Computed example of a mutant assay.
Amino acid sequence: MTEYERSRTMSVEPEQVFDQVADIGRMGDWLPEALHVHAEELPAVTVHEDRSDEDTSALLRARREQMRLEWGTRDQGAYTGWLQVAGIGGGASEVTVHLSFFDGSHDPGEKAVGDALDTSLRRLEEQVRPRDDAG
C-alpha cells in the first residue's frame, strides 16, 4: 500500500470550504482536471479519468458533522481517500487530503500524485477565497 497526504491552510471558514468540496456539481472546479465525478444514486458515483479514458465505479460520502469527505473504488478496492476540513481559528481552515493505493497498478507515482494534490488544494483555495470586488 502506498499513501500520500497534503495539507493547505486557507483563510476561509471551514463550513464554507466543506460546502464547496461536498458539492458534487462543483467538484470539477477543484479536482484534478483529468478527473470527472458523475453522481448516480449516492453514495454511488462514477469517476472518469481522461488519462486512461476509463470509468471507475466509486463511493463518495460527505460527513458534514465531521467536515469530512471519503471516497474509494467500489468493485476492486484499489484506492481510497479522504479530505478533512478543520477550523483553526480566526476564520481560517486547514484542509488535508489523504490518498491510499492498495494496488500498485492504480498508483500514478509520487510526483504525479503530489502535483495533483497540490494543484487541487490550490484550485480549491481559489474557489473559496473571498473575492475583492473593489478591484
Rank of each mutant, 00 (worst) to 15 (best):
Q84M: 12
S57T: 11
S57A: 15
F102A: 11
A58G: 10
G87F: 04
V45R: 05
S93L: 04
G91Q: 02
V128P: 00
L35K: 05
R63M: 14
R64E: 12
A34W: 07
L42K: 01
S93T: 08
K111I: 14
S105M: 09
D103R: 15
V45W: 04
E41T: 11
D115G: 10
W71S: 01
A39M: 06
T119R: 07
L117V: 02
E125A: 14
H98M: 12
G87P: 05
V47R: 01
D118G: 08
A34K: 14
D107V: 05
A39R: 09
P108K: 13
V37H: 05
G72I: 02
H106R: 13
E54W: 09
R68Q: 06
S105K: 11
G28M: 03
R51A: 14
S100R: 15
I24N: 01
R123A: 06
T46L: 11
E33D: 11
G104C: 02
D107T: 08
R51I: 15
E125T: 05
P108N: 01
D53W: 07
R64W: 07
D23E: 09
R122F: 10
T80Q: 07
G90W: 02
V37T: 13
D50S: 13
E54K: 15
A92K: 12
A78S: 13
V45I: 08
L69R: 01
D118I: 11
F102Y: 12
L35F: 06
S93R: 03
T96K: 11
Q127N: 10
L60N: 02
E54G: 13
W30T: 02
A44C: 08
V37M: 06
L42Y: 06
H38Q: 13
A116T: 08
E65V: 13
L117D: 02
A62N: 12
G72Q: 00
T56D: 11
S100T: 14
V45Q: 04
E41V: 09
E125N: 11
A92R: 14
T119C: 09
H106C: 10
V85A: 00
G89R: 10
Q127S: 12
D107H: 01
V95Y: 00
W82I: 03
T80Y: 00
Q76L: 15
R68M: 12
L121G: 00
L69A: 01
T46V: 12
V85F: 00
L99D: 09
R122G: 11
L99Q: 13
L42H: 06
S100L: 14
P32G: 05
G90S: 05
A112Q: 13
V37E: 04
D53L: 14
R63V: 15
M67G: 06
H106T: 15
D75H: 06
E49D: 14
V45D: 00
R123L: 04
H98R: 05
A58C: 13
P43V: 08
D50Y: 09
A22M: 07
H48D: 15
L99M: 10
A116R: 04
V113Y: 03
L99R: 05
A78N: 13
G89M: 05
L42A: 05
A22V: 07
A86K: 08
S93A: 08
A39Q: 08
G90D: 03
G114M: 06
D115Q: 14
L83Y: 01
M67E: 07
